[in-house]
């Protein structure tokens, strides 16, 4: 038996998740307040916000496999919020780079984005997140139609991949941490492929059976 919350319970869960999602920011702010960001605070903030962006992307991508494997369809109700938090931390990460790191030196920023592959992919991932955040409301789902909306939001697979590449390309030598993200992403995307194959097999199987039925297929010995 799996847990199926009532609407009130869902509202409470959502509120709790919302607060939990703000904890990384709260902890970062607390560390800043206590002067515990180390010798290079800007680097620390950049790393922390980047790390949380990737983590929230992975959590968001976990919703679909989790709700199917655990038979907890209501988990879907949390996905939008988690995805928006990924965008929220990505915005903080991007702002840190533009403001604290480069201090609005736009000629240098443009050079960076064009010349440095790890910044190019990170920037691309961020830009691709914007339309997803903008079309996250119920009204936008309606306006676009479920099919087109879903097609657009599959961009998150690309975004997750670019995010991992961004991390992989920026480290000097020790790639263990980005590899962990790569592995998690591979499992999450792989799960979707497995689901698809199974679905295809399931939908195909009856058709095959139907077609093979002599009367319906219209073929066979007469």
């Amino acid at each position: 038996m799996t847990f199926q919350p009532t609407p009130t319970q869902i509202a409470r869960i959502k509120a709790a998740v919302f607060v939990a999602c703000l904890m990384p920011l709260a902890l970062l702010a607390l560390r800043a307040w206590r002067d515990q960001l180390g010798a290079n605070p800007i680097e620390y903030i950049t790393r922390a916000t980047g790390w949380w962006t990737l983590t929230f992307l992975m959590i968001t991508l976990t919703v679909t496999p989790a709700r199917r494997l655990l038979s907890m369809p209501w988990l879907l109700r949390l996905r939008r919020m988690l995805g928006l938090f990924a965008f929220f931390y990505a915005s903080l990460h991007f702002t840190t780079y533009i403001w604290l790191d480069q201090f609005f030196d736009f000629s240098d920023i443009v050079k960076d984005v064009v010349k440095r592959p790890f910044i190019t992919v990170g920037f691309t991932a961020f830009v691709l997140l914007i339309p997803l955040a903008a079309t996250s409301t119920n009204a936008m789902v309606k306006r676009l139609g479920a099919r087109r909306w879903q097609w657009l939001h599959r961009a998150v697979y690309v975004i997750g991949t670019l995010g991992v590449i961004h991390f992989l390309w920026l480290v000097k030598k020790d790639i263990r941490e980005p590899l962990v993200y790569a592995l998690v992403l591979a499992v999450l995307l792989g799960a979707r492929l497995v689901f698809r194959w199974r679905e295809r097999a399931r939908t195909k199987a009856p058709t095959v059976r139907a077609n093979s039925h002599p009367a319906r297929a219209g073929i066979g010995p007469s």
């Binding site: 480069q102 050079k111 390309w169």
Partner: peptide
Amino acid sequence: PRWSQAKERRIGEFGK
């Protein structure tokens, strides 16, 4: 090859 060496951040300073 992966980043610029034109500027640096002096530890303890804000700007580069």
